[in-house]
Amino acid sequence: MPAPTNVFKQRLARGERVIGCWAGFADPYATEVLGTAGFDWLVIDGEHAPNDLKSIMGQLMVLKGSDSAPVVRLPMGEAWAIKQVLDAGAQTLLIPLVESAEQARELVRAMRYPPAGIRGAGAALARASRFSGIPDYVATADAQMCLLVQVETRAGLDALDEILSVDGVDGVFIGPADLAADMGFPGNSADPQVADAIRDALGRIAASDKAAGILAVDDATAQQYADWGAQFLAVGIDVVMLAQAARQTVKLWAGRG
């Protein structure tokens, strides 16, 4: 029996547009609720949300059987952290702050077993192998790994074409907020210079054999990014959705007798 098929990876390879959402509550219950909404993919965020290995694993567990594919974002691309979340059952990783082709190649190697990579072959202990229930997991897992790298600085944009040439990278995600800050426009990804850089980057990615990704929390910007070539498009953040809904409700009822 082979490793489970990564449907998200397949959909990207077919060129399908997939709509996603950020899962930032770091809690399986909240992520399970989000998994019933119908998003194609959800980011279990370990960079800016208070997740650890156990909370990530809990969310992977509740999304099993959901139509929403889990994408785990680590805070860094360290091989030991990649090994742990892959063993916990993640198949798709989003790694921030990638600025060179060499960095991308090292991430590819961290997600693959020898001889193609350096992932530790202790699959007998792993949830990913169903605790040795998939006897040929090690032999088949590499083909189901999906690597998404974040390009979110001027240095990353300068190296974008080289990053796009790296075999094993499935998609490149443009980080608009960090890119805006790095370009000197903190908090303003709509600045014309930043928008031009994003449009150029999405176009170059879309013209390659990689999938282009990005996040936008308002409909107009999300549609603009889609028009510019974004294929895996995140259109919301669960924490922000709750905060906005709660504030709107308070505003509606404030002052009523």
Rank of each mutant, 00 (worst) to 15 (best):
P2V: 14
K9S: 08
E16K: 09
I19N: 07
G20Y: 03
W22E: 03
W22R: 10
G24M: 04
T31C: 14
E32L: 13
L34N: 06
D40R: 11
W41L: 06
G46Q: 04
K54W: 07
K54L: 12
S55Q: 08
M57A: 15
M61G: 10
L63F: 09
K64H: 13
D67W: 05
L74N: 04
P75N: 12
M76N: 13
E78T: 04
K83I: 09
D87L: 08
G89L: 07
A90H: 03
L93H: 03
L94E: 04
L94D: 05
L97M: 13
Q103R: 10
V108N: 04
V108Y: 04
Y113L: 11
A116D: 15
I118Y: 08
A121T: 12
L125G: 09
A126K: 02
R127M: 08
R130D: 15
F131T: 06
S132W: 06
I134G: 08
Y137V: 07
V138Y: 05
L147E: 07
V149L: 08
R154N: 12
A155Q: 10
A159H: 06
L160P: 04
E162S: 05
D167Y: 01
D167H: 01
G168A: 08
V169A: 05
G171P: 03
V172K: 01
I174L: 13
A177K: 08
A180M: 01
S189K: 02
A197N: 08
D200I: 00
L202E: 06
G203K: 05
D209T: 13
D209C: 01
A212C: 11
A220N: 11
A220H: 10
Q224A: 14
A230N: 13
A230K: 02
D238I: 10
V239A: 14
A245G: 15
Q248I: 00
Q248H: 09
V250M: 14
K251S: 15
W253S: 13
G255K: 06
R256M: 11
G257H: 07
